[in-house]
C-alpha cells in the first residue's frame, strides 16, 4: 500500500505520466473478475493454464513416443529432455532422502517444469497494448507462488511428521538447544514465504525490466531487449531449479535426524562428509552446495 505508493512514486516515468491519471507502467495490475464475492486474476489463471498445458503436452509427447518403440530403447529428443530432468531430480532426492521417494521426486519434477514454463511465458511478447497482456508470467503473481510454496511446505511438514512421528517432529524444534525454539519455528514459517517471494520477486522484476525496455524507442530497444531476454531465460531456469532443489532439501531437513538440523551450509557439509565416507559419488551435493546459497541470482 504505502510501500507500493512510494515505489510507483520513485519510478521516474510515473511522474511523467502523472497527468494522464494512470502510471505508464502499472505494478501488480491484473485483469480481475469478481465471482461469488471473490476476486480472481483472470490473466494469471489463463497463463497458468497455458503453462500447465505446455508441460502436459510435452510430457504426453514424451510418454507417447516412449510407448511406441520399446525394443531398441533409443529415446527420442523430448524423452531425453524429460529423462535429464527426471534423472537429475531422482539423483538429488536419492542423495538427500536416501531413496527415490515416490512423492518427493514427482513433486520436484512438476515444480521444476511448471515454474520453468511459467517463467518463460514472460518472454513471449503478448502485451498487445497497455491494458491487454495476454500471457504474463503467472509466477509474477504471488497467488501462484504462494500456492506452490503452500503445496511444498504442507508436503514437507506431513513428510516430517510421518518420518518422525508427531512427538518426534515437534521435539525436533527444541533441538539442539531449547533456547533456539523460537528461531526454529520462525525458520519453518519463513521457508514458505522465502520460497514464494524469491520466485515472485525474480520474475516480477524481470517483467518490470521488460516493461522499462519497452519504453525505449523502437530503434534503440532491440539491443537491451535481446540481452535482457537472454538473461531472463537463464533466470527462469535458475529460479525453477532453485525452487525444486530447495523443496528437496526441505524434505531432507524435515526427515533428517536432529544432529543434522543446522543451517543449510552445515547440513550440506555434514551430508557431504557422510557421503564421502560412504561412497565417492557426491556430485549432486556439489550442485546443491553451489546453488543453495544463491537465493537471489544476480539482479
Amino acid at each position: 500500500m504505502t510501500g507500493l505508493l512510494s515505489l510507483t512514486g520513485l519510478l521516474p516515468f510515473a511522474a511523467d505520466s502523472g497527468e494522464e491519471d494512470k502510471p505508464a507502467i502499472e505494478i501488480g495490475h491484473h485483469v480481475t473478475r469478481e465471482f461469488a464475492g471473490m476476486t480472481f486474476n483472470i490473466d494469471t489463471i489463463i497463463s497458468t493454464l497455458v503453462a500447465g498445458a505446455l508441460v502436459l503436452i510435452l510430457g504426453f509427447w514424451a510418454t507417447r513416443s516412449l510407448s511406441k518403440d520399446t525394443a531398441d530403447h533409443v529415446p527420442t529428443k523430448v524423452q531425453i529432455l524429460w529423462e535429464a530432468v527426471v534423472g537429475q531430480v531422482n539423483k538429488q532426492v536419492e542423495d538427500n532422502l536416501g531413496k527415490v521417494h515416490p512423492f518427493v521426486a514427482p513433486l520436484a519434477i512438476s515444480l521444476f517444469f511448471f515454474i520453468l514454463f511459467a517463467n518463460w511465458l514472460e518472454l513471449v511478447p503478448t502485451a498487445l497494448n497497455e491494458d491487454t497482456h495476454l500471457l504474463p508470467a503467472p509466477t509474477a503473481d504471488t497467488n501462484l507462488t504462494y500456492a506452490l510454496a503452500a503445496v511444498t511446505m504442507l508436503s514437507v511438514w506431513t513428510y516430517g511428521i510421518r518420518q518422525k512421528g508427531v512427538k518426534g517432529y515437534f521435539k525436533h524444534f527444541a533441538e539442539p538447544f531449547p533456547v533456539l525454539l523460537p528461531l526454529n519455528i520462525l525458520e519453518e514459517l519463513i521457508k514458505p514465504i522465502t520460497l514464494a517471494l524469491r520466485l515472485f520477486g525474480n520474475i516480477f522484476a524481470g517483467g518490470i525490466m521488460l516493461a522499462l525496455i519497452g519504453m525505449i524507442p523502437l530503434y534503440a530497444m532491440w539491443a537491451p531487449n535481446i540481452l535482457w531476454k537472454a538473461f531472463d531465460m537463464i533466470i527462469g531456469v535458475i529460479q525453477a531449479f532453485i525452487f525444486a532443489l530447495l523443496t528437496v532439501l526441505y524434505f531432507a531437513m524435515a526427515g533428517a535426524g536432529h544432529e543434522e538440523h543446522e543451517t543449510h551450509e552445515e547440513y550440506e557439509d555434514e551430508q557431504r562428509s557422510k557421503k564421502l565416507a560412504d561412497q565417492d559419488d557426491n556430485v549432486g551435493h556439489d550442485d546443491a552446495a553451489s546453488a543453495e546459497p544463491s537465493p537471489v541470482p544476480a539482479h
Binding site: G28, F40, I109, T142, N143, L144, V151, F204
Partner: peptide, 26 residues
C-alpha cells in the same frame, strides 16, 4: 486491489491447478 503481496482468491485456483498438474505428472 493492486497490492501484489496480498493474495486473493486466485490462490485457490492456482493451488488446484498445480495439484491437478502434479497428479497428472505423477
Amino acid at each position: 486491489e493492486s497490492n501484489f503481496l496480498v493474495p486473493n482468491a486466485t490462490f485457490f485456483v492456482e493451488l488446484a491447478a498445480f495439484v491437478v498438474l502434479l497428479f497428472l505428472l505423477a
